[in-house]
Each structure stands twice: as C-alpha cells, then as structure tokens.
C-alpha cells in the first residue's frame, strides 16, 4: 500500500515563474491493485511519479510504502521497493550490452555488486524461460546488443527487468505511448499478466482512456494537483469517462490559454 500524505511541491520558488503543482495532496493506492492515473499535461502526473521514485524531493508531506516512511531514501535506495518503466524504451535498458547482460544485471538488483563474474552460465536456461513468456523470440537473441532491438522489444525487456525482482510498487509512466497500436496492445497484455500473476501494486499513467479503463482496477483523474475523480473501473463506462476526461482537459487548456 502506498500512502501520500499532505504532499506539497513548488517549482521555481521565489521567481515570477513560481508554480505550485501540489499543495496538501493526499492519495492512497491499495495493495495488489492497478490504479490508472489520467490527467492533462501539466496536472502533476509525472511530478508525482518523480517524487515517489525519489528523482525529485517534495517541499512537504510524507510518502509511506507499506507503512514505512521512504522520505529520506535516495532514488537508488528506493529502487529496492519500486520498479519503474519509462515512456522511452531506452530508459530501462543498457543499449550497448546484450540481452543476457542486461537481464543478468537486473537479476542482481539491489544485491551487492562486487568483483564476481556477472554472467552465470547456470542461470541462462532460467532467463530463457522468462524471455519466452514475452513471445518475441528474445530467448534466441541472448547475445544481441539491445541497441539493435525494436522499440517494442526493448520496452518488453524493460518491463521484464523492472519486475524480475518483484517490486512492492510498480510505476508505469506512459510506457506504451511511444509504441504503435499493435505493439502497445501486446505490451499492455503482458503488463496485465505480470501484475495479476505477481499481484503487483501498480500505478499506471496513461493518456489512453480506454487502456486505463480496461487494464486498471481503479481510475484516478488528476487536475491541477488535485484528485478530480476517483472511481472503480467497473463503475464507469468508457463514454462517461471520456466525457469527464475531455471536459477536464478542456478546462485546463482554457485556463492555460487565459
């Protein structure tokens, strides 16, 4: 369970461009659930993810993960509990290393890295099995450098690497936005499979209302740093959600224009 209590965050403090993104923001994400986060650009979705994963520090408020306060942990220390998949497929992999080398690194996640050999030949079959579940033929390309993979293959690998050690919280940051519709569907299905089989607590940012509805248990819509809508996916249909989403987007863009 993730609890965000009384969060506040401002940018460019003290300048004329001062921007308040969050002021007294509260949110609880339930354990084992996938929560879809919707909202227009600039509503604070990415800032929220960056604060949770420790890339940005908040000005005030607390973040508790499974009742433990993670406020004072660095980004790298939070990685012990948090897995994140970014919009850019290259953010989750090391392009100049091979698939085998990448997956071996992620398999050692949050353990002590030392002067032992990284590649463990005994683990290769295990890795092949995991890669097989993606159904992309990556298991036969273990020695291919990741830079030669397509965006979809790379993103599938990123997803696998972020979840190979079961995280307590999985953050999906528009992770299919850079992919074509067919690939995007494949990755979304794979994501759902992973979330269900490991009952991962997940937050998923999306601009695709249908995906958010189909793949999450709960929908949160953010608007100007506040929760504008909080609803179970089964209690709302696509048309209604789309209507609210568009009206919110309209208001935000109107406000920006003024």
């Amino acid at each position: 369970m993730l609890e965000i209590k009384n969060l506040s965050k401002k940018f460019n403090i003290g300048t004329e461009n001062e921007l308040t993104v969050f002021d007294g923001f509260n949110l609880t994400i339930n354990k084992g659930e996938c929560t879809g986060i919707l909202g227009a650009n600039g509503c604070g979705k990415s800032t929220l993810f960056n604060i949770i994963s420790g890339v940005l520090t908040q000005d005030g408020g607390e973040i508790l993960l499974n009742d433990e306060n993670i406020n004072n942990l660095k980004e790298s220390e939070r990685s012990k509990f948090i897995g994140r998949v970014h919009q850019n497929p290259s953010m989750g992999v090391s392009p100049s290393l091979t698939i085998l080398e990448n997956i071996s690194l992620s398999d050692k996640k949050c353990q002590k890295f030392g002067l032992k050999k990284l590649i463990n030949r005994n683990k290769i079959d295990e890795f092949k099995e995991i890669l097989k579940t993606l159904d992309l033929g990556l298991e036969n390309m273990l020695n291919t450098e990741v830079k030669f993979l397509s965006g979809g293959q790379r993103q599938s690998l990123s997803l696998l690497m972020a979840t190979i050690k079961k995280p307590e919280l999985l953050l999906l940051d528009e992770h299919t936005a850079a992919l074509d519709p067919k690939t995007s569907r494949l990755i979304m299905d794979k994501t759902r499979e992973l979330i269900k089989s490991h009952s991962l607590t997940t937050m998923m940012i999306s601009h695709n209302v249908r995906d958010a509805l189909n793949y999450s248990d709960r929908i949160i819509m953010l608007d100007k740093g506040h929760v504008a809508l909080d609803v179970r996916s089964k209690d709302i249909n696509e048309k209604e959600l789309m209507k609210i989403y568009n009206s919110r987007n309209y208001e935000s863009s109107l406000a920006e224009a003024v």
Binding site: S76, G83, S96, L97, K109, C110
Partner: peptide
C-alpha cells in the same frame, strides 16, 4: 550507457 538503469538497480 544509462544512469537511470544503474539507479534502478539500487
């Protein structure tokens, strides 16, 4: 290659 990955490995 990618510092974000290294941080995500803890």
């Amino acid at each position: 290659d990618n510092e974000t990955l290294v941080k995500s490995l803890g």
